[in-house]
Amino acid sequence: MTLTESQLIDMLQMQHDMNSKVNTDWVLANNNWHRAIQVEGVEAIEHHGWKWWKKQDCDMAQLRMELVDIWHFILSAALQHKHGNVALARLDMMAEQNLHQKTVQFDNQYFVLAQMNLLAKLDLLVGLATVKRTSLALFESLLTDCGMDWTLLYGQYIGKNVLNVFRQDHGYKDGSYLKIWHGREDNEYLVDVLEMTDLNASDVRATLYQSLKLQYASALEKC
Score class of each variant (00 low, 15 high):
Asp186Val: 12
Glu140Pro: 00
Ala44Tyr: 02
Gly84Gln: 12
Asn98Lys: 04
Tyr209Asp: 09
Asn187Pro: 08
Met1Cys: 10
Glu195Tyr: 00
Gln215Val: 05
Leu67Lys: 01
Tyr216Ile: 09
Ser141Leu: 01
Val104Gly: 04
Leu125Glu: 07
Leu63Cys: 08
Leu142Ser: 01
Gly127Glu: 13
Asp17Pro: 15
Ser202Cys: 07
Lys213Met: 11
Phe73Cys: 03
Asp169Ile: 11
Gln97Val: 03
Ile158Cys: 14
Leu143Glu: 01
Gln38Asn: 07
Thr197Val: 12
Leu63Tyr: 00
His48Lys: 01
Gln62Asp: 01
Leu214Gln: 12
Leu128Ala: 03
Gln7Glu: 15
Glu140Val: 00
Thr144Asp: 01
Asn98Gly: 00
Gly171Asn: 08
Thr197Ile: 08
Asp59Leu: 01
Trp26Ser: 13
Asp92Gly: 03
Asp186Leu: 12
Lys55Leu: 06
Lys222Pro: 00
Gln80Met: 14
Arg205Ser: 15
Lys54Val: 12
Leu88Ala: 08
Asp192Arg: 08
Gln62Pro: 00
Ile74Ser: 03
Lys121Tyr: 00
Ala89Ser: 12
Leu125Arg: 04
Leu12Trp: 05
Val42Met: 11
Ile37Tyr: 04
Ser135Trp: 05
Ser211Gly: 05
Thr103Gly: 00
Met11Ala: 10
Ser6Thr: 11
Lys160Asn: 13
Leu99Val: 06
Tyr177Lys: 06
Gln215Lys: 09
Leu12Gln: 09
Val165Trp: 13
Ala87Glu: 14
Ala129Ile: 04
Glu140Ala: 07
Leu8Ala: 03
Ser20Ile: 09
Asn187Trp: 04
Lys102Met: 05
Ser76Thr: 15
Ala129Gln: 06
Leu212Ala: 11
Ser211Val: 04
Thr103Ser: 06
Phe111Glu: 06
Leu99Lys: 11
Leu208Tyr: 04
Glu221Cys: 06
Asp123Lys: 12
Asn19Arg: 11
Gly155Arg: 01
His170Gly: 14
Gly49Met: 01
Ala87Val: 05
Leu152Val: 07
Phe139Ser: 08
Lys21Phe: 14
Gln210Ala: 12
Phe166Ser: 14
Leu79Ala: 11
Gly49Val: 04
Asp149Ser: 03
Gln15Trp: 04
Leu142His: 02
Glu221Tyr: 03
Ile74Gln: 05
Val204Met: 11
Asp198Phe: 11
Ser20Lys: 15
Gln7Leu: 06
Thr130Val: 10
Lys160Gly: 14
Met93Ser: 02
Arg35Lys: 04
Leu194Gly: 07
Tyr154Trp: 09
Leu220Thr: 07
Leu194Met: 07
Asp10His: 09
Gln115Arg: 13
Asp174Ala: 09
Asn108Leu: 02
His182Met: 10
Asp107Phe: 02
Leu91Trp: 00
Leu136Tyr: 00
Met1Ile: 07
Gln215Ser: 06
Asp149Phe: 02
Gln215His: 03
Tyr110Asn: 14
Lys54Met: 13
Asn200Ala: 14
Phe111Asp: 07
Leu220Val: 07
Gln115Ala: 15
Trp50Ile: 12
Leu124Arg: 12
His48Gln: 04
Gly175Thr: 10
Gln156Ser: 09
Asp123Ser: 02
Val126Thr: 01
Leu199Asn: 10
Asp25Met: 15
Val39Phe: 02
Thr151Pro: 01
Asp174Gly: 10
Asn31Met: 15
Asp10Val: 08
Thr197Glu: 11
Asn85Thr: 11
Phe111Tyr: 14
His16Gly: 00
Val191Glu: 10
Glu43Cys: 12
Asn161Ile: 14
